[in-house]
């Protein structure tokens, strides 16, 4: 039995089919990176995996249990989630935001105790951002805020962490740092599912890569087997060269297309 198993799920908004027949499974410590062009339904898929959307058919099993039969609270003990974007709310302190990760373990009428605070502080320390604990989370940079949400998930202690485009609001350097953190978390035993725009990310932290295109996975497997020039061309409709850097890491180079716009576009008489 796998830790997290998805069997033939499909989802549509009304008549509009978003994806169908998606299956995969991951085990403890796996990192699955879901690649695919804009608008293929990666976010919708991600929201099915953590129970925010309900799949029309198929099953999603966490530790062998179908998430449809679990309460939000039970799901949240096993699955942590960081959304793609966050609309800033009231200027809560960083420590208070991280402490929200303890909600799955507290009943409705209680507030976090010292032990929860200890766990939250520890999560901040793991990511070396404990110096931010009294800052307002709304005043942080995009990179710092992403770390705060990661700390919240660490305090939540799930088995699986699902991230929707975790690097999309981060600068060049912070993207790599975040992927390294993801790799470290997976080595510590957390299983991770993330979506990404960048095929390179598939080589950086993942044990598994899936490519989503035209409402389904066109390929899934080890990064080296899936991230191929052929698959990338199919997914993104451009030609791609894979080059091996001298440290052994592969990078994807998108090739120029012959796109030509009308040159008279901005001509003023």
């Amino acid at each position: 039995m796998s830790l997290f198993e998805v069997k033939n799920i499909s989802f549509s908004y009304g008549e509009d089919l978003i994806f169908s027949d998606i299956s995969f499974s991951i085990d403890k410590g796996d990192v699955l990176c879901i690649l695919g062009p804009n608008g293929t339904g990666k976010t919708t898929l991600i929201k099915c995996l953590n129970g925010l959307n309900e799949a029309d058919s198929g099953e999603i099993l966490i530790n062998g249990k179908n998430i449809q039969n679990l309460s939000f609270r039970e799901i949240s003990k096993s699955i942590g989630y960081i959304p793609q974007s966050h609309i800033p709310s009231f200027p809560f302190k960083v420590l208070d935001v991280v402490m929200m990760g303890r909600a799955p373990y507290l009943n409705l009428s209680s507030t976090p105790n010292e032990e929860d605070e200890e766990i939250a502080l520890n999560a901040l320390k793991v990511l070396s951002i404990d110096h931010l604990k009294d800052k307002e989370y709304t005043n942080l940079s995009g990179g710092e805020r992403q770390l705060v949400f990661l700390a919240r998930v660490i305090a939540q202690q799930p088995d699986v962490l699902i991230l929707d485009e975790p690097t999309s609001h981060l600068d060049f350097g912070n993207q790599i740092k975040l992927l390294e953190i993801i790799q470290n978390l997976s080595e510590a035993g957390l299983s991770i599912i993330m979506s990404s725009h960048f095929p390179d990310h598939g080589f950086l932290a993942s044990t598994k890569v899936a490519i989503m295109k035209d409402k389904k996975f066109i390929d899934i497997g080890k990064p080296d087997d899936v991230i191929t020039e052929d698959n990338l061309s199919k997914a993104y409709n451009i030609d791609v060269n894979l080059i091996e850097h001298n440290n052994g890491r592969k990078v994807c180079i998108p090739l120029e297309t012959d796109l030509k716009l009308d040159q008279d576009l901005f001509k003023k008489d």
Partner: peptide, 23 residues
């Protein structure tokens, strides 16, 4: 008074609140 901490979580948005186990 009993739900005052849950209000903090609800202020983060429905999706985040749900992923933290709240309905």
């Amino acid at each position: 008074l009993l739900l005052r901490w849950q209000m903090n979580i609800l202020a983060m948005g429905d999706e985040e609140a749900q992923s933290l186990g709240l309905n």
